[in-house]
Design a binder for these strands. Sequence first.
DNA 1: CAGTGGTCTAGACCACGCT
DNA 2: GCGTGGTCTAGACCACTGT
Lengths: 261, 261
Amino acid sequence: MADVPTPHQGAARYRQVAEELRHRILSGAIPPGSLLPSEATLMAEFAVARGTVREALSVLKSEGLTVSEKGRGTFARSAPPVRRLAADRYRAELEQVRSGELGTSFTVDQRIGWAEYHLDKTFNEVAADETRADLFGVALGTMLLERRFVFYAKGLPQQSSVSCLLLEMVAGTPIADPSNEPWPGGNTSQLYSLGHTITAVREQVRARMPNSAESETLRVPGGVPVVIITRQTYVEDRVVEVAEITIPADRVSLDYRIDLT
Amino acid sequence: MADVPTPHQGAARYRQVAEELRHRILSGAIPPGSLLPSEATLMAEFAVARGTVREALSVLKSEGLTVSEKGRGTFARSAPPVRRLAADRYRAELEQVRSGELGTSFTVDQRIGWAEYHLDKTFNEVAADETRADLFGVALGTMLLERRFVFYAKGLPQQSSVSCLLLEMVAGTPIADPSNEPWPGGNTSQLYSLGHTITAVREQVRARMPNSAESETLRVPGGVPVVIITRQTYVEDRVVEVAEITIPADRVSLDYRIDLT
DNA sequence: CAGTGGTCTAGACCACGCT
DNA sequence: GCGTGGTCTAGACCACTGT
């Protein structure tokens, strides 16, 4: 190009545009349900071609932050009724990590209308009991790093989880340091930083009524069950993480797609 | 454009290209792990601009069918997803159906331990309400064959389900005849008999307390929630069946495996 | 009708992987 | 060095939604 080529210093231009628009949505500058600037407007504002604008918008769309309607415009997505833990999110997370973009699935999910969130965390070193040894496929008593989280959005607890990692794998790394939580990119990113690219995830799903401790920490209303997800994270054939995730059933809908091809 | 604009007769060109490539991958013409034709090659083959080719490839990428590597090429995803139990069930059914070992053998359900079972069934023709029209991706009011089942094992109700098929697809076929239930091989087999091989299944999972009708028909003990699975059965990109399955949570554990390769 | 997003073309330069 | 995908530009026509 004659002018303003600068295509590849730092992040790609369309990523920068996406980042800026993402910030406007998350900060509330573009409220849920409202119209984004038109593509023509964005072309002028960022001084880029339409293709670049559309590439940026397609990023936001794939993150579920926007929806577009032909002839009308592109809108910031209004708050979803419930959180959707799409199984595909692991795939998306992985691609994000690889491409250097951040944001955990949780934060992405919560972005719309749940801008502020924090978490409680407790780290411990424990020996594997029978259940965990079985899930990991290791010997009884193998040392694990047990991390307990409670995720809050807008002050309301959304889910609690107990995540275990093999201690020998993470001891002495930043992952074992609670002060690094929340870690942008989540588990996927943490494991990636150790050189492990996750290859599969297995989730077993159950539901039951919460016990008193759960209904207290998660503030589960009466008559609402909890969904329990037992998750195993695989690198090749090795289980590198086992987590038990507890979510009030009125705050979640799980989404799985099974390809038979 | 001067020549071959024809941008909008039927599906968009990039969708057609995506469809063709998808077919090659799913049919095995492009085996898992192998290289797709380069973008330049595809441009020539389909006589489209590079942007169109890339749009098509981005569709496949978002479906998890391909991965691309800068400087190397675009590859068909190496390992197709494998599932267990609830999910593996569909795969097993499909293999059974394909191998033609139907009349002789037990159904997959029986294999899992539903040895002796019977079912209550009610068939109706109904118009699609908003929810169902949305799940099917068809117009409001489209006629559906609604089939209600209650499955019993050893006299105890295990699950109830409401399964809908497109009426125009099944009207006048043996599938529309309740007296043919239970149909060995289940839905997979039924659709196969119409020439449709299912390619994917999507399940959305929720949990809540049962209502009084549910706790009666399913004999759900007090304090036990039900798991609700909303299932969409796909043949290519078309939804051919929508089912809502209700299972007492104390009688089920769902198992999903997500491959990220 | 004007404005919007959806689709498409025909070029271009870049960073990367391989040979 | 050459081929690959990644990014970007500057146009174009279309279908749809609004006034």
